[in-house]
């Protein structure tokens, strides 16, 4: 599709460019909120408003105070630290258990396969507020409410459906004869798993992990119930910021996260290109 053939008719040309424009607009729709958030995070006022000074590009209208606030305020720092402590552990938990289970599910003879699948997917389909309230009562009773592990377990449960879905999807296309071949050549099941199966299903595992991580990192409903003061995460702090006193510090945090994620995603992409070059593959 890349490029227009030289023999394309006028109609085809018009459509080609119209289509590009439509796609451009949709991409713009995707990032429009971010485009708004970034300048507002430099607002000199404490509101989410484009002030006349900002529109005139008057330096008076801009300030770094919301960034300073984020880095100096102990509440925000604690929230950042809590998010960093909770999300990766929850992700590891859901990815490791989820991948194992997905492999189990992809075997030929699994009894009650559909029922099991439905149960494993259920955290995604139960409305979040119901899960939150249910976990709150149940975790209170077993002493997990308001503890670090309570939040981690809750978030891991929420992330599992994503891991299951992505990993099963990659396993559908997985050629089983590869593991048999490995076993034939004397590899034990663990070696087979890590050396043969894992590298092949890795893309699925990674995207599952990504979803699971985001689920935890951006989750506010469940943590509000299951967590207590000691587990206040970034979204929780943001939620308070929106409820109690609107502060563009929220936008500053969002901007920082966007910049960090652009850097991360670009690094991953560059690394991928490098490894492709090293392996002598030309990018498709």
């Amino acid at each position: 599709m890349s490029g227009l053939p030289p023999y394309a008719s006028t109609g085809q040309r018009t459509w080609y460019y119209t289509f590009r424009v439509i796609c451009g607009l949709i991409f713009f729709f995707l990032i429009a909120p971010i485009v708004v958030v970034i300048p507002l995070s430099f607002n000199a006022q404490d509101f989410f408003t484009f002030t006349p000074e900002m529109l005139r590009l008057d330096p008076e209208g801009y300030s770094l105070k919301h960034y300073r606030n984020f880095f100096s305020d102990s509440g925000w720092q604690a929230a950042l630290w809590n998010s960093v402590r909770i999300a990766p552990v929850a992700t590891i938990l859901s990815v490791s258990l989820g991948t194992l289970a997905a492999i189990g599910l992809s075997q030929d003879h699994v009894p009650a396969r559909r029922a099991i699948m439905a149960i494993l997917i259920s955290p995604m389909i139960v409305p979040l507020i119901i899960s939150a309230a249910g976990m709150y009562f149940f975790f209170s009773r077993i002493g997990l409410q308001g503890s670090y592990w309570g939040v981690v377990l809750a978030h891991a449960a929420l992330g599992i459906p994503f891991v299951i879905i992505t990993v099963t999807a990659t396993l559908v296309g997985f050629d089983r004869s590869l593991t048999r071949a490995a076993a034939n050549m004397g590899a034990d099941p663990v070696t087979t798993f890590f050396r043969v199966q894992m590298p092949l299903i890795l893309p699925g595992v990674i995207s599952g992990a990504l979803f699971a991580f985001i689920t935890s990192f951006d989750e506010v409903v469940v943590v509000l119930f299951v967590g207590s003061a000691g587990q206040k995460t970034l979204p929780w702090q943001m939620f308070l910021g929106l409820r109690e006193q609107i502060s563009p510090t929220i936008l500053a945090v969002a901007t920082i996260l966007v910049v960090v994620s652009i850097a991360l995603l670009t690094t991953v992409e560059l690394l991928r290109r490098r490894s492709e070059r090293l392996r002598g593959m030309s990018p498709s």
Binding site: I34, V37, I214, M238, I250, V253, L257, V258
Partner: peptide
């Protein structure tokens, strides 16, 4: 496509 994912739901809604 992935960027909005990394922006908190609350921030996107406010935006």
């Amino acid at each position: 496509v992935l960027l909005p994912f990394w922006t908190s739901l609350l921030v996107r809604t406010s935006a």
